[in-house]
Nucleic acid binder design. Structure first.
Length: 510
DNA sequence: ACGGGAGTTGTTGTA
DNA sequence: GTACAACAACTCCCG
């Protein structure tokens, strides 16, 4: 009797899992598969922490599957070879999976799997993932379709009635040569941990979401903490959206159950907007599958002519640029695997405008740092923060300004940069300005214990920004930018300007 | 969801 | 009450 394969990719859950439901309707036996593909260990944008986190979640998935009568086969093998050997052993009838919108490598891998399926007369049924709409050529209908997708009722896991192909092998994690860096922040893996995180967030921290997420200090507390779960699919986007909507409805109808309903509703609306952004960015990659390899505006990219400078690159990566706030961010990221969105933009802006480093190298390094690396969001952001799309205004951040805004007392800097732990607030954002006696008093000798800035922040930013404007002002760049806008431009209409209380405007009304 | 300068409007203190 | 400086807060614009 043939088997149907349920191939788990970035969807490590049993609740709200359409391929699982559809496969359970089949009369064939069912084979549940999760692959760690060896090629991934070599990819420039993939880190061992990603594989480790996926495996942690896959092991939780195995337990959830067992509870409904399924056995998960975890294999360290190339996809085609794994399918081929299962095909030889059992004869595969159909493959059920979610659509994946990943990096160029996974896109190519899926093409090969499709070819293998055609060759072997195996049907591969792929189901939509979160808010991504496959097959669109522009953004005209995207928002509508995404919103209606989010309204579909959540699916409960099926009963598998002992039709699951047993798994005699126990997966040995140590056999695959995984050597991830040890993160200082531990996340509980799995579907129920994700649901608990969501419930805790919506019950407590979400109130401060809108005001909490700009600073790296507060964002750890007031962010949702859901991104690592969403990335591996331990929770579905639809469930997050619907649970958020329920909470909004609850507070609207019974405002007395919370202490400040207005604040709650503002923050929840802002959170919901971020969830939509998430889908929006992944949709970009869906429509431009090589966003991780090729700039959206190739002409601007070549005009920019950024070049690798090893020393700058290393100092940026290791958080030793001499800009305290940036260095603190880089060290937090390396240590915990996470930093808030705004600081990600600042980090990328520093690499692009101050240090003039090529976006692909900077982007790959950051991808490896993020426990929640999501190719669509990441490479869209890299494009934006390196000024290579041509459709976004150039945003070059000032590290010292951000530092003073987000960390006025410098506690965050002192926490992540022990060399600066005794530096007084007056100098914490610009330690190179410390007189030598102060340096000695606080045991922080500039250029010995902590470096002076790698380049002058103000002039390097100005120069980077000027060069970027020059690169996008040529005729060819502009033509290309128009094409990018047609394809990817958000269809959200610009907000109408508020009418001024200006007399001249008043007069025009009559 | 940029930074910095210029210009504008609003607020406070002082004589 | 008035005149005005000093300064904060906000808006617009450009790179």
């Amino acid at each position: 009797m043939p088997v149907d394969v349920i191939w788990f990719k970035k969807d490590l859950r049993v609740r709200d899992h359409q391929p699982l439901i559809e496969a359970a309707k089949s009369c064939n036996n069912l084979l549940f598969l999760f692959l760690v593909e060896p090629e991934r260990l070599e990819l420039e944008d993939t880190d061992h922490i990603h594989i480790e986190w996926e495996l942690d979640n896959a092991e939780e998935l195995a337990k959830s599957l067992a509870a409904i009568g399924g056995h998960l086969h975890i294999k360290f093998e190339n996809a085609i070879r794994a399918l081929q050997s299962f095909h030889e052993e059992f004869e595969i009838g159909r493959i059920f999976s979610h659509q994946e919108t990943g990096n160029s490598w996974s896109y190519q891998r899926d093409l090969q799997v499709k070819e293998w399926c055609n060759l072997n007369k195996v049907e591969w049924l792929e189901f939509p993932t979160n808010g991504v709409i496959r097959g669109l050529t522009d953004r005209d209908l995207w928002k509508k379709k995404r919103d209606s997708r989010m309204r579909i009722e959540l699916l409960e896991p099926p009963n598998l009635e002992s039709r699951s192909v047993p798994n005699p092998d126990i997966f040995d994690r140590t056999s695959i040569g995984l050597n991830p860096r040890k993160l200082s922040f531990n996340r509980e893996p799995g579907e129920s941990a994700a649901a608990t995180r969501l419930a805790d967030f919506l019950g407590h921290e979400a109130k401060n979401f809108q005001w909490g997420i700009s600073s790296p200090v507060n964002a750890v507390k007031f962010g949702s903490g859901l991104s690592p779960y969403l990335t591996v699919g331990a929770i579905s986007m639809r469930r997050v959206v619907q649970t958020t909507n329920d909470r909004i409805h609850e507070i609207r109808t019974k405002p007395d159950i919370v202490s400040d309903a207005k604040m709650w509703l503002k923050s929840l609306a802002s959170f919901r907007k971020r969830l939509a952004w998430r889908c929006h960015f992944i949709q970009k990659l869906e429509m431009e599958s090589d966003l991780d390899l090729v700039a959206q505006n190739k002409i601007i990219d070549s005009n920019l002519n950024r070049v690798m400078d090893e020393e700058r690159f290393i100092r940026w990566k290791t958080g030793t640029t001499g800009w305290p706030f940036l260095d603190a961010c880089m060290r937090q990221l390396a240590s915990t695997g996470w930093i808030n969105f705004r600081m990600r933009a600042m980090i990328m802006s520093a690499a692009s405008y101050n240090l003039w480093l090529p976006w692909r190298d900077a982007g790959c390094h950051l991808a490896k740092q993020f426990i929640d690396y999501e190719p669509g969001i990441h490479w869209s952001q890299v494009g934006m923060q390196s000024g290579t799309t041509g459709i976004n205004t150039i945003r070059a951040y000032s590290m010292t300004k951000q530092g003073k805004d987000q960390d006025p007392e410098g506690d965050y800097i002192r926490k992540w940069i022990p060399e600066l732990s005794m530096v007084p607030t007056k100098y914490i954002h610009e330690p190179w300005k410390m007189p030598i006696e102060v340096q000695e008093n606080v045991s922080c000798l500039i250029d010995t214990q902590y470096p002076s800035p790698i380049v002058d922040e103000v002039t390097s930013r100005k120069e980077g920004v000027n060069r970027s404007y020059a690169a996008r002002s040529t005729k060819e760049s502009r033509t290309q930018s128009k094409l990018v806008l047609q394809k990817h431009g958000s269809r959200t209409r610009p907000r109408k300007r508020k009418a001024k209380k200006d007399k001249s405007v008043q007069q025009k009304l009559f």
